[in-house]
């Protein structure tokens, strides 16, 4: 089963994202910030990371940089799911190694089709 690491500091958002991903037939691992996500990423082999940007302790941009430094996550798709729609943040995300940028609110069907697309 394809495993997705879903990272968001908002419990309601994690609920909505996990509900959508499980409904799409994915196995979901949840984390509430970048630090927790990095630990879980090392413990579990995840096939894709879906992360919020603004989070306490470690944000999504920093998490992406850290993950890209790990041999296991060099080529794993990392999608940012965020309320940030500004160019600056997007450019930062791209430079950090993100695969794509999804602006909230998300459409569940579009989220799933985007995930399937980047999983190839």
């Amino acid at each position: 089963m394809t495993r997705i690491l879903a990272v968001d500091d908002s419990a309601s958002m994690r609920q909505m994202v996990a509900f959508t991903l499980k409904g799409g037939g994915f196995d979901v691992v949840e984390a509430s910030d970048g630090v927790e996500a990095l630990e879980l990423a090392k413990e579990n082999d995840c096939d894709l990371v879906l992360t919020d940007v603004n989070m306490p302790n470690m944000d999504g941009i920093e998490l992406t940089k850290e993950l890209r430094g790990l041999a296991n996550y060099k080529f794993v798709p990392i999608l940012m799911l965020t309320t940030e729609s500004g160019m600056d943040k997007k450019t930062e995300g791209r430079a950090a190694g993100a695969t794509g940028w999804i602006v909230k609110p998300f459409n569940p069907d579009q989220l799933l089709s985007t995930i399937k697309k980047v999983l190839g």
Binding site: S10, M13, G23, P56, T83, P105
Partner: peptide, 25 residues
């Protein structure tokens, strides 16, 4: 159909999260 309440609450979720994020930022 599929998605149920999650679809309806997306607006509210966004409005709340966007406000909180702007403050945290």
């Amino acid at each position: 159909g599929w998605g149920g309440d999650a679809l309806v609450t997306r607006y509210g979720n966004w409005a709340m999260e966007a406000l909180i994020n702007e403050i945290l930022k």
